[in-house]
């Protein structure tokens, strides 16, 4: 079954290009390309200079996030049947472009690191595991599964305007993941760390993050919980 698709791809190689441009490619697919990533490999065979990140090809490593026809997503989880004849691919918005579809994610990870993304519990650990009830464990569902692909943060206007000051949905989801963990003892300082006009409160519940998350997570809900805790604490 011949299926010709038109790809319009953001191209920029600082070694050779003075400025970025959109380039158009026609690709003949044979039906074996289930996902967009499969089609991209075919395209790369036509022009090996097209650069993008990829690894697990099953939506768990978070490498191949890109902007697909205007919406952020993972190439490996985007079924070709869901895409129109013409496919426009751009790098994730709001981050500096290194080359083609590859962005510099430093700012994104800086914000992730800023929320102290690790458990804090200074009590002497028991010989065996720390016990946690099933109910307490369930609090972590929908939080710990994040793959740090950055689809959410780079679809968030608040993150676009203030990537240095606003933690962004991915970082805040992680912040709440530790607040919500019954084994973590650092809630007070975690909340202190978010109490300023930007870090948390720049979220205006636009909810693009929820719309694009390839893992079906809900950062807005986590952000809401954090806001609620801060407000309660002040009251």
């Amino acid at each position: 079954m011949a299926d010709t698709r038109t790809f319009e791809i953001y191209r920029y190689n600082p070694d050779v290009d003075a400025k970025p441009s959109m380039k158009t490619y026609e690709v003949e697919l044979d039906g074996s390309e289930r996902m967009l990533l499969d089609a991209l490999f075919k395209l790369k065979k036509q022009d090996e200079s097209i650069s993008f990140r990829r690894s697990c090809r099953e939506g768990v490593c978070g490498s191949d996030a890109m902007n697909i026809n205007g919406k952020n997503g993972l190439a490996c989880l985007t079924n070709m049947l869901t895409l129109p004849q013409k496919i426009t691919l751009r790098p994730l918005p709001g981050l500096p472009v290194v080359r083609d579809l590859i962005v510099d994610m430093s700012q994104f990870f800086k914000q992730y690191h800023s929320i102290k993304p690790y458990i804090v519990n200074e009590t002497v650990p028991p010989e065996k595991e720390r016990l946690q009830s099933q109910e307490d464990r369930e609090e972590l569902n929908g939080l710990y599964e994040c793959i740090l692909c950055a689809c959410c943060s780079t679809s968030c206007p608040s993150f676009w305007w203030n990537p240095d000051k606003f933690v962004g949905p991915a970082g805040l989801l992680a912040a709440y993941r530790f607040v919500a963990d019954s084994r973590d003892h650092d809630t007070a300082s975690r909340l202190d760390n978010l109490e300023d006009p930007y870090r948390l409160f720049r979220c205006h519940t636009i909810m693009n993050c929820v719309d694009v998350c390839p893992k079906g997570l809900n950062p807005t809900r986590a952000i809401g919980k954090l806001k609620e805790m801060l407000v309660k604490r002040t009251a």
Binding site: I119, K128, E129, R130
Partner: peptide, 23 residues
């Protein structure tokens, strides 16, 4: 094996739990 798993739990690994709170 048990030691490295307990250590990982102490590091914050979100293991599923039994009704008694164990891994």
């Amino acid at each position: 094996a048990p030691k490295v798993v307990y250590e990982l739990e102490h590091m914050g690994m979100p293991f599923d739990r039994n009704p008694d709170g164990t891994i």
